[in-house]
Write a protein that binds this DNA or RNA. Structure first.
Length: 958
RNA sequence: GCGGGGGUGUCCGAGUUGGGUCAAAGGAGACAGGCUUAGGACCUGUUGGCGAAGGCCUGCGUGGGUUCAAGUCCCACCCUCCGCACCA
């Protein structure tokens, strides 16, 4: 282990000394621009980040070895609220938060004190993580590094947002948010004490006329207006009459407050208990029916308007509440209500649902035995029936122009129609209570004048879809996900008032939000090298400068003069941008699919339509010992810790062996240790290989090994091309090792030349994954230069030897069959006789294969064909018997296997088995004899020997 | 609810696009043997069941179906993980 550590340090220093990962434009070489989304610096880089980053690095290394000019840059995400929030928690002395910083991150008390400054905290982790990333051996061009809080980067973001706005992609908007009145800010999920996942829902308000005012009853089911029988008002809740945008509304007192936050002008003119209006009559605007207001204790004044209309045929609550009144007329005594009228109210059927009669609510209430309106089962009944009616319900005749339609089809149109006719209005509310961390109950607020990225814009969406379809997506199954996200995306609030970030250039009291400033920054990598090198000042980076660099706009001299950046530098930057862009691969964990990766596409279509991303990779989310990683639960592994414990190569390999595609990798310490041990023995094996001198005899086994290696090369290469890193490393490491193992098991005297030849290729195939150890082996083999820059092995068809491969197939078959017999018979063999198939059998066999190539064969046609051959005709009887055995086999054989065997033709199995004689002797500890079936040793072997078939020699054991 | 992923042997995990070489790669664990002063190191082998001859039986979430043949195709169902926005 120690030796590996030294090796790692040595090579990392060598790479840095020789600056081999610093990439500059080179018109003679094709480029590959490969990126990893910069990580947020509110904590240490962990093994989850490392999983994604290692995939990216392995790919970058692979492409570099293939001869591409590869750029893999790195940066740090400072922008956003999280660091500010974290810093705040340190300041407040939140022990729950601070303990992991001490125990997991190993932050000293001294530093901890300084964490009250968010910038300090960010720079602490930036430095910390830079060192960690360096030690992981990632092949990064560090000259382009930056942090998103740097003034030059801010200039880039300013340019980006100015241009986005000019193109109409940024606009002011008004949207409902969950709002904490105390904090005076939107309350995101992670800021909530209660109500995680709850978001504002829009209720339709149906405006029922009552005297000179309206009763705006809230509902999700405005279509049920055709079945209204009465209104429900909570008798003991406080209601108000208020002037709402010029109309008189009667709503609960709470509702009036909510409406105010939703941009309505609300002036309360009177307050009263609900009971005061119970018994009054209102008018259903759809049919001018006059109906009564009744007391409903189930009505919550906290919910929407606190006014509910009653549809007893289809709403379980309404039916139960009505039934309560009808069964207990005495409860109406205190109200000014005509009990006879209440008794005469009948549900009005207006939706037809399969499996129910006219009054589904009545039926379901009976089925579930809902006792009364305070029974929790009423809620269940409601949900059940709503779902059923929404998907399967058809509006009845009574519903006028909407009759015959399904509820889900007609709902949106109906709401729109009602609104147009001023029958309906709407308001937002939370379906469940939400409480802020500060313990204040949240409400819905309609925020005005926020800045939005207009992701809802259909034209922009379509451009983005096109961009996506043109790009490669790994794994392919993520493509559909992206398309769905593009469909689903709404406008995105892209600026905030708090946290770190770049101020919006036209409205500096807003700051560009963190997921909105990380969409096209890859372009900044291409020029940041020059900005740093020439010490270009932020104020020199005017929008015109960026226009020139990215779009070639403006006169070079003019731009140079205006900015004070030399024309040569401007030229270089433009050249550098044009050389590296577009991004060839962007890879991240799948959590970024619904936001960052999709935004990345949107913004590129908006700003760099000529330079659209070529490929996007998505990978799973790392688990730790089978559990989600969680700092607060102590289930957390930093990359730094892993590197210290297992070394870089073992960490990298173990990570990549965990998973590929969108599967979630599972990091288990035990596995990592194993991988570390395997690496060590790989190193020892390599060492013993290049240090040894030995036999140089070659037979088909060397051919076989080299041939098999060609398949491995192809598999690893193909896998890497599509970012199947697990398959790639699995083949590049374990499979080749197994091949070598088989070779060594088979061969008496190892051919060291061949071994070295194999090792030379093997090491290169493995280098993207375990670069340090491979560098060491490479140099120990006496190779010039770095393996990191060595040529990627190419599959060489000329080295493929099917005959050698099939010969080994034969040996493996025989080995397996023999073992099988020994196991079944429990014999301890003294002598084993192998009898290979007679030449005429081969002739017939190959004939059968040939025929089956084009069609399904049958016995008679095969026989007919075979009988054309005079030699076979002589032994017609045996041939017929044999043909029967091979017809099925030939038919069933996969085509490529058939072709292979035909290509190999008749094999001299006797010879092959004789060559393997010592091998079998070792394996079975018995004398081995190999002959043709025609040449059998003992007459009593006859019966058995006759059963020989091509690739299945007969076996006789004694 | 909507959208996406996935259910394979003791465990992890390939294989499913284009059905046959699949009792099913690779790894882990377990077992046996070797090396060794020793080893949680390494090397070699075994690892569904049955079997006195290379075979048979069971088997890839559940239930049906198509086919000479299904882990792979079709239908229905069950389970599970992830995302669902003012936030990284």
């Amino acid at each position: 282990m120690e030796i590996l550590r030294q090796i790692e340090e040595k090579w990392r220093e060598a790479w840095e000394r020789e600056k081999i990962f610093a990439a500059d434009p080179d018109s003679n070489r094709e480029k590959r621009f490969i990126t990893f989304p910069y990580s947020y610096v509110n904590g240490p880089f962990h093994v989850g980040h490392a999983f994604t980053a290692t995939r990216v690095d392995a790919y970058a290394r692979f492409k570099r070895m293939q001869g591409y000019n590869v750029l893999f840059p790195w940066a740090w995400h400072w922008t956003g609220q999280t660091i500010a929030g974290a810093s705040e928690r340190v300041k407040l002395g939140d022990e729950e938060f601070i303990r992991p910083l001490r125990e997991i991150d190993g932050v000293s008390e001294d530093d901890l004190k300084r964490f009250i400054d968010p910038a300090y905290m960010a720079s602490y982790y930036t430095n910390e993580n830079r060192e960690t990333v360096r030690r992981a051996g990632f092949s990064i061009d560090w000259r382009r590094e930056f942090r998103t809080a740097s003034p030059t980067f801010n200039k880039f973001i300013e340019w980006q947002y100015q241009r986005l706005r000019e193109k109409g992609y940024v606009a002011k908007g008004t949207h409902p948010v969950v709002w904490c009145p105390h904090c005076e800010s939107p309350t995101g999920d992670h800021d909530r004490q209660e109500g995680v996942g709850v978001s504002p829902e829009e209720y339709t308000l149906i405006k029922f006329r009552i005297d000179d005012a309206y009763l705006p009853a809230a509902t999700f089911r405005p279509e049920t207006i055709y079945g209204v029988t009465n209104m429900w008002i909570h008798p003991d809740a406080t209601y108000v009459k208020a002037d709402v945008d010029g109309e008189q509304w009667i709503v609960s007192e709470k509702a009036a407050g909510k409406l105010k936050e939703q941009n309505r002008k609300v002036e309360i003119t009177s307050r009263f208990k609900g009971r005061e209006i119970i018994g009054k009559r209102f008018i259903n605007p759809i049919n001018d029916n006059e109906l009564p207001i009744l007391p409903g204790w189930f009505v919550s004044p906290d919910h929407a308007t606190g006014v509910v209309y009653s549809v007893p045929a289809h709403a379980p609550y309404d039916w139960v509440a009505l039934r309560d009144l009808q069964e207990k007329p005495e409860s109406l005594k205190e109200f000014n209500v005509d009990t006879d009228e209440v008794r005469s109210i009948r549900p009005i059927s207006m939706i037809e649902v399969e499996g129910f009669g006219d009054f589904p609510a009545v039926e379901i209430v009976e089925q579930l035995r809902v006792k009364d309106q305070s029974d929790p089962k009423a809620e269940e009944a409601t949900k059940l029936l709503y779902k059923k009616e929404f998907h399967g319900g058809i509006l009845k005749e009574i519903c006028g122009k909407y009759a015959g339609s399904r509820v889900y089809e007609v709902k949106d149109r109906l709401i729109e129609d009602f609104k147009k006719k001023s029958i309906a209005d709407s308001m937002y509310d939370l379906p469940q209570p939400v409480t802020c961390r500060c313990l204040t109950p949240c409400i819905v607020k309609i925020l005005e004048g926020q800045w939005f990225l207009r992701y809802s814009d259909e034209v922009w969406k379509e451009k983005t879809r096109t961009a996506l379809r043109k790009a490669l997506v790994y794994p392919e199954s993520a493509m559909q996900w992206f398309l769905n996200i593009i469909d689903w995306l709404r406008d995105w609030a892209c600026a905030r008032k708090t946290g770190l970030g770049t101020p919006l250039p036209w409205s500096p009291d807003w700051m560009v939000e963190t997921l909105s400033d990380s969409t096209v920054y890859m372009a900044f990598y291409t020029i940041n090298k020059h900005i740093k090198e020439h010490n270009i000042k932020p104020e020199q980076l005017t929008p015109l400068v960026f226009d020139h660099i990215f779009y070639g706009k403006g006169n070079l001299e003019g731009v140079a003069e205006e900015s004070g950046i030399s024309s040569q530098e401007l030229k270089d930057m433009r050249r550098e941008f044009l050389y590296w862009y577009p991004v060839d691969l962007r890879n991240s964990a799948k959590e970024l699919v619904p936001n960052h990766l999709t935004f990345f596409l949107f913004h590129h279509t908006a700003l760099f339509p000529e330079h659209l991303p070529r490929a996007i990779g998505v990978n799973g989310w790392l688990m730790l010992e089978g559990e989600k990683m969680s700092k607060s639960k102590g289930n957390f592994a930093t990359l730094r810790g892993a590197l210290g414990e297992y070394g870089a190569d073992a960490t990298r390999c173990a990570l990549l062996l965990c998973a590929e595609g969108m599967d979630d990798p599972d990091w288990r310490r035990e596995n990592v240790r194993d991988v570390g041990n395997k690496l060590e023995s790989f190193y020892n094996l390599a060492k013993s290989t290049f240090e040894s001198e030995g036999a140089t005899e070659r037979d088909h086994l060397e051919e076989w090994l080299i041939s098999t290696l060609q398949h491995r090369i192809r598999k690893v290469t193909e896998s890497m091309e599509t970012l199947k890193t697990r398959t790639a490393i699995e083949n590049a490491f374990y499979e080749i090792w197994n091949d070598i193992r088989w070779y060594r098991r088979r061969k008496e005297k190892i051919n060291t030349e061949t071994q070295k030849q194999i090792l030379e290729v093997w090491t290169r195939l493995f280098a993207p994954f375990a670069p340090h150890i491979c560098e060491e082996i490479w140099s120990k083999m006496g190779k010039e230069g770095f393996i990191s820059l060595a040529e990627w092995p190419e599959h060489d068809e000329d080295k493929v030897n099917i005959r050698a491969e099939e010969t080994e197939e034969l040996v493996k078959n025989v080995l397996e069959d023999t073992s099988n017999i020994l196991r079944a018979t429990k014999m301890v063999p003294k002598r084993i006789y192998y009898y290979s198939a007679s030449p005429w059998k081969w002739k017939a066999y190959l004939k059968a294969l040939e025929q089956s190539l084009s069609k399904k064969i049958d016995l008679s046609s095969l026989m007919k064909d075979l009988m054309k051959d005079p030699e076979l005709k002589k032994a017609a009887r045996e041939v017929a018997k044999f043909a029967r055995q091979i017809v099925d086999e030939a038919n069933r054989m996969p085509d490529d296997k058939r072709r292979r065997e035909l290509q190999v033709g008749a094999m001299n199995e006797t010879q092959a088995l004789k060559q393997a004689q010592h091998f079998f002797e070792r394996e079975f500890d018995a004398e081995i004899y190999a002959h043709s079936e025609d040449d059998r040793q003992h007459e009593d072997h006859k019966k058995r020997a006759e059963s020989a078939r091509p690739y299945r020699p007969a076996i006789y054991i004694e």
